[in-house]
Amino acid sequence: MSLFTLTTQVLRDPDAVASSAASAALGRLAPPLLALAVGGAALFGLAAGAGSGPLQATYAAVKMPVLFLLPPLVVLPLVHAFAEACGASVPWSRLSVATLAGLARSGLLAAAAAPVLWLPLSVETPYHLAVLLFVASFMTVLLPALSTVARAVPRGGTLRPMALVGTALTLGLLIAQTGWVLRPFVARPTVAPTFLRAVEGDVFSALGATTRSATGDYDDAWAPESAGVWRERRAE
């Protein structure tokens, strides 16, 4: 199957590709689907980092496929486990093909969205607005992948809404934390391009600090209290 044919099929009817559950199909489809996902994500990363110069754009293009691929792959066992626990078992190979097909579709949509993202970032958009645009675009292009995987699980079963909520929350956590680990994608124009920053804290402590900053509290005198989400409090 040519890459062009597969591209058309993934965009028009990803469920038909996802239903190719035979192992022979998985081995044959995985490389081109992965190529589509990685290529599209890289273009999206290129657009996200373009506002901070070519080097930052290159860094973002290298890291973006990881942000696309890692969270759905890590949450794949949870999807399979929930399906089994709810009484709607789905073969692992079928789920795998559905995930790859969904990611390929999202990659293609991301490639299409790349110029849309690049336009506002290329005109010196304020940093925080640029980050919000990036996050909104990312979630928009990733959603079709998630819906393809969700449709691969047979209907029926018990407690499916609970399974969906649990999976969505876990995936959201994974995307947020993975994005935090791989930052920066959209960099401040005044900062020198960096590939990765040190993994310090977590996305939630960063959100907490941002929230405090938003309330006007810029005090840096914080001391860790204990491990976990609630790990920082004002030093006495």
Partner: peptide, 19 residues
């Protein structure tokens, strides 16, 4: 399995273990 499938497995092995 072909070389492309094996290379893909290096990156996305959770989706390829069923093979």
């Amino acid at each position: 399995a072909g070389a492309p499938a094996a290379l893909a497995a290096v990156v996305v092995w959770p989706a390829m273990v069923s093979l």
